[in-house]
Design a protein around this nucleic acid. Structure first.
Lengths: 221, 221
DNA sequence: ACCTAAATGGTAGTCGCTATCACGATGGTA
DNA sequence: TACCATCGTGATAGCGACTACCATTTAGGT
């Protein structure tokens, strides 16, 4: 339903949106986020300042990512329900990051990976963006609760699920930061698995799943 | 060194600061955070809008709390270093929340507790405040790393410490939300301990420490 | 009594963001 | 082919958070 009209109009709209975000990330990286105004971004993209707000609700959304909710929910529903909470959620996180970093073809992954890394670095270094990102992850926590499929009516069950989900997502964030510091060279799913093991112990880290099995897989496709 | 001059001048400054924040929290709770302007707060407090910014760097800081860093660091240094990371950090969190909720005399705790609860509710319900609070907690993570006293030079050790600290602080946040939903009637240290147990398993939760021992202690003083 | 410094108020300006109206181009339709 | 609705964009005006700069009053120390 997104491509209801793969017309010339929709193509141009998508292209301007891509251009605006690309110039925004470039300018933010070059001059800094706070030192770059929305008017600067608009001028660089060749549009009016208002057009920026038609495509992105706020200046922060020019950088933020966080469209991984559905992917994570799918992996959560696929996980066996008889394991501990942190193991179910942690395994889904490892799987989801594996899809994200190894999903596309190597060429597209290289270009998109650079773009994603630039945005990730901005999100980590800029206080306003970091705060928004952490809040988005906090919202993702509720999506995790819903995807777990456990009894959400019982407040005690929901409380325990929230605690486990929040802890797992914080661990994910730690792994993301380290991945960005390493310029995306490290294997993100392995980093997530290591961070999960550091927080919850090796018993809860799904090392037997898809964490370690793709060390050199990235360039074999 | 804060009270270098317990003069009339410092007293008036502290009083205006307190009045500004009190009126701000009241107005935010009554009309909503976004619907209340800084000019409204200033007028209610009987000062000029600029005076508000002289006492609080941003509008968000009129609500945010987060001065628990030193307390938590002290408890962390007091924890035995031979236990697992999440146990050391979790125990310090339980102890710190016990001091916070049961620290003062009952009378002051009742008044301050209401004020603290109002701010906590605003922080949870308002997106901008929630984001800033989560970022403050993320900054607290680094303070935890430093207070642990482990070898921060080794990036692998620091990575594991960051993962554990982030997970523990996310669990703390979950407990804080539940405490606020319960209007502060529940025992916060016990909630933190329960949340820690839900995330890390009972082995990592310091139930043998000061969590359970103060169930009805609140109203026996 | 004098002088320094702190606390506050005023003014003007920038920037993020919104509401509103207008215009041109695109897409389906008679 | 001609028509019209809709979409994407642009321009203006305005609000609110926040800052820089300067003026004024007043408490504190000498």
């Amino acid at each position: 339903m997104v491509d209801r009209h793969p017309n010339l109009r929709a193509q141009r709209r998508a292209e301007t949106q891509r251009a605006i975000q690309a110039h925004a990330v470039r300018l933010f990286t070059e001059r800094g986020y706070d030192a770059t105004t929305v008017a600067d971004v608009a001028e660089a993209a060749g549009v009016a300042p208002m057009t920026v707000y038609r495509h992105f609700p706020t200046k922060e959304d020019l950088v933020l990512v966080d469209q991984n909710g559905p992917l994570l929910a799918e992996r959560l529903r696929a996980a066996p329900a008889d394991q501990p909470l942190v193991r179910r959620i942690g395994g889904a996180l490892v799987d989801a990051t594996a899809v994200l970093t190894g999903g596309g073809d190597p060429g597209a992954a290289a270009a998109d990976g650079r773009f994603l890394l630039d945005r990730l670095r901005l999100m980590i270094a800029t206080p306003a963006l970091r705060a928004r990102h952490l809040d988005n992850q906090y919202a993702l926590q509720e999506a995790v609760i819903g995807a777990l499929g456990d009894d959400a009516a019982d407040p005690e069950t929901a409380f325990r699920a929230r605690a486990a989900a929040g802890a797992c997502l914080a661990v994910l964030h730690t792994a993301l930061v380290r991945w960005a510091e390493d310029d995306g060279r490290a294997d993100l799913p392995a980093l997530v698995a290591d961070a999960l093991a550091a927080a919850f112990g090796d018993a809860a880290a799904p090392l037997d799943r898809s964490a370690r099995r793709q060390g050199p897989r990235r360039f074999t496709g």
